[in-house]
Amino acid sequence: MKHLKILILVINFLLNFNLAHASDLDLRVEQITKNLRCLICQGQSVYDSQSDFAISMKLVVKKKLEEGKEEKQIYEYLKSKYGEWIVYEPELNPNTFLLWSIPLILFIFGGLLIVRKVSIK
């Protein structure tokens, strides 16, 4: 579990590590709200929606960022209010351990199968 967590953190870091560093407030709001589900819309992110709920949510995210909150803290805050359903990226916990690890286990398993089939000579 711990290794997987580190692995996912590293991947996350690599995927989101921005060499130019997004310092622009609007850009950060955009990044965060794209990862939030608009609860009253059908399959839309908060960013993509123009519903009352989504408009307020964008303001809240912006306000929290201005207060100096980190991205992660904002997700935690919203999860406490609305449950895990609101974030598009499921966090790694006992509930979602299999979600993250099944594909990786299958990948390793498949690799072993191929190694067994193939002769190295």
Partner: peptide, 9 residues
């Protein structure tokens, strides 16, 4: 602006 209601979930 609806932001206070979000505090109430």
């Amino acid at each position: 602006d609806g932001t206070k209601s979000i505090e109430f979930g």
